[in-house]
Amino acid sequence: MTASSPLRILGIDPGLRVTGFGVIEKVGHRLAYVASGCIKTDAEAALPKRLGTIHAGVQELIAQYRPDQAVVEIVFVNVNPQSTLLLGQARGAAITALVAGNIDVAEYTALQIKQAVVGNGHADKTQVQHMVRRLLALPGTPSPDAADALAGAIAHAHGGQGLGALSTKGYRIRNGRLQ
């Protein structure tokens, strides 16, 4: 990529029921919205079928938008270990589709993404939606899942590999947050 050629970034906010996605382009220091939405799975379907839906959906996104890089939010253990395991599997389905599509994948915590986009790692979903709307000059507010995916792409565009390399040495992770 040269300084003037666009860099297309696909953000993924993994979820077993709803996986948000957002695509932006970065040219120099400017960001432009390309697309966003959600991959929805059938809640009544068996787990393997739902994971297949996520994988196939991400493959379709790669074919349609041809991203240069991708960002996937890192999942932390929460109160319910079973939910964490299921979410991790959804995340894995998305990552395997990206890797199979030969897309470089960056990973950031929710705290890193919120800090980069909102300026507060503990921001709530409405604050993330508001900042994504402002930063990309969107005419409307994106859904929470799409906004989280777009926020990941924005954080990557602004911080690149430097953000992903934030040191966590000396910190511990508790309830999904660095302390």
Rank of each mutant, 00 (worst) to 15 (best):
T109Q: 03
G152D: 00
L135F: 04
D68C: 03
I173N: 06
A94F: 09
G20P: 03
A165L: 12
Q161M: 15
G170A: 15
I154E: 11
K125G: 02
G92K: 06
A90P: 00
L51C: 07
Q69W: 15
S36Y: 02
Y171H: 15
H29W: 09
F76V: 03
N78C: 08
G20S: 10
H55I: 08
P48Q: 03
P142R: 10
A146L: 09
V132C: 08
T53W: 02
A146R: 04
A46M: 03
I154G: 06
L61T: 04
G57R: 00
T109F: 06
T19A: 14
F21A: 05
V117M: 13
K169F: 07
I173L: 10
P67N: 02
G88F: 11
A45R: 02
P139A: 08
P6K: 02
Q64T: 12
K125C: 00
P48V: 05
Y65A: 11
P67I: 05
S143L: 09
N175K: 14
V132G: 04
Y108H: 14
G28C: 08
H156R: 01
E44S: 13
L86G: 03
G15Q: 13
D42N: 15
A147S: 15
L47V: 04
I39Y: 13
G140R: 14
Q82H: 02
A110H: 07
T168V: 11
R50S: 08
G121C: 06
A146V: 02
I173S: 11
V79A: 12
Q129A: 09
R50E: 07
I173C: 03
A70G: 13
E107I: 12
N175Q: 15
Y33Q: 07
V77M: 11
L98N: 04
E25D: 13
I12F: 12
V75K: 01
S5A: 13
A165N: 15
L7R: 11
T2P: 02
L163R: 12
N80F: 01
Q64W: 02
Q89T: 05
D104A: 15
R172L: 14
H55K: 13
G164V: 08
A157E: 02
M1V: 08
S167R: 08
A116C: 11
L150K: 01
K40F: 12
Q59Y: 05
D124P: 13
T53P: 00
P6T: 08
Q179P: 07
I54Y: 10
V105R: 05
A35P: 07
V23L: 04
A97N: 07
D104R: 15
P139K: 15
P81V: 10
R134T: 11
R134Y: 00
Q127D: 00
G152F: 10
I74E: 10
T53L: 06
L166R: 09
E107N: 10
V34K: 07
Q112E: 11
R91E: 05
